[in-house]
């Protein structure tokens, strides 16, 4: 059942479209990631959903009610910003209690009990009396999350919540955020430019580009069956082969390198070899210009005895090839 809907929303900043007829639908309890390159309008969409930005036309429907004109404070959501926006002059627990005070008339003791409850959920009880600057980036992030969920919001908005953290912490927090979200069953919309984050965390991924939604669907569908050339090129790696009428696209791991005596679809001169741990990526040029790459498990690669300058022969299975109209594919 759809909990939140955005219908035909348009938002312009000085004649530049930030959102051009955008419609999305979010089911109750799911985690939706809005994914796209910077400047695609994803943060604007989040702010329109939050009521922090007014849209020029279109509707926002929350829980069956038209919320388009509703101010942010009446929409009952929790939000975590990229910068966390923790109040630096208040302690961890002070931040949470300050948020709680606005929505509740409960006694100080009750508020503190609630604050401790959410802080234990994010494992910050031992840091509750510290100031934000005394915390690590990950701890600040968890404080912001605790503050956002403390008010028992009907939905949660996360604006690039992990982008300010280093890679290790980011991976760890992905799991933690997802676990807390599942535990609370709270409908969550997260904005990110990191496709790995979107693919690993989301129930539904919404890919945006140039102020429009390109595709919405489960991560596996987005990856295996991208509906536009942009999505195909933006998510993961993709080889594009331009034709006269259409562009063919195939993932590097779906291409098979074979011996020259076997039947092959394409041949290319190896231009570079990148060792990537479990996989090795082999680059070549098709014909005159198009770059092409193939992923081979590093174990298999040693058996191929390929080196730069040598020829490689490839089979491109038809069933894994995608076709897009026009010769406008973009190699990534």
């Amino acid at each position: 059942m759809s909990f939140l809907q955005v219908q035909n929303v348009v938002k312009r900043f000085d004649h530049q479209y930030a959102l051009n007829d955008v419609s999305i639908s979010v089911n109750k309890g799911e985690l939706v990631c809005i994914l796209g390159p910077s400047g695609c309008g994803k943060t604007t969409l989040l702010r329109v959903i939050a009521g922090l930005e007014k849209c020029d036309s279109g509707k926002v429907i929350i829980d069956g009610k038209d919320a388009t004109k509703l101010p942010a404070s009446k929409r009952n959501f929790g939000i975590v910003f990229q910068s966390y926006a923790l109040f630096p002059n208040m302690t961890v627990i002070g931040n949470v209690i300050f948020a709680l005070q606005q929505k509740s008339k409960a006694s100080k003791d009750e508020l503190e009990t609630r604050a401790l409850e959410v802080l234990s959920m994010v494992d910050l009880i031992s840091h509750k009396d510290k100031y934000p600057r005394q915390l690590s980036g990950g701890q600040q992030q968890r404080t912001a999350l605790a503050r956002a969920v403390a008010i028992s919001p009907s939905f949660l908005l996360l604006d690039e919540p992990l982008s300010a953290l280093d890679a290790k912490v980011r991976t760890k927090l992905r799991g933690e955020i997802r676990a807390i979200q599942k535990q609370l069953g709270v409908t969550t919309i997260m904005v990110t430019h990191d496709q790995e984050e979107a693919l690993t965390m989301a129930d539904t991924v919404i890919v945006m580009n140039n102020a429009v939604v390109e595709q919405a669907g489960p991560p596996t569908v987005i990856y295996t069956n991208p509906s536009t050339a942009f999505v195909a090129g933006f998510i993961g790696s993709m080889n594009f082969i331009k034709g006269d009428q259409e562009t063919a696209a195939i993932r590097p791991e779906m291409v098979k390198i074979v011996g020259y005596r076997e039947s092959y679809d394409y041949s290319a001169k190896v231009s570079a070899i990148e060792f990537r741990g479990a996989l090795t990526r082999v680059f070549g040029r098709l014909g005159s210009s198009e770059e092409f790459c193939v992923d081979v498990s590093s174990q298999d690669f040693s058996a191929l005895s390929l080196r730069e300058g040598a020829m490689m022969y490839m089979q491109v299975p038809r069933e894994h090839t995608l076709f897009y109209p026009g010769a406008m594919g973009r190699a990534v």
Binding site: R47, A50, G51, L52, P71, A72, S73, K74, R75, F77, G78, I79, F81, Q82, S83, A85, F87, P88, N89, M90, F98, A99, Q102, K103, I151
Partner: peptide, 26 residues
């Protein structure tokens, strides 16, 4: 942080309160 204002709007903290409790001390 300009997101303090967005934050306070989402929590329905009036601006004057944000001003006195956060902006002034900082």
């Amino acid at each position: 942080d300009k997101e303090f204002e967005s934050m306070s709007d989402s929590l329905s903290i009036p601006r004057w309160k944000l001003f006195l409790r956060v902006t002034v001390p900082l």
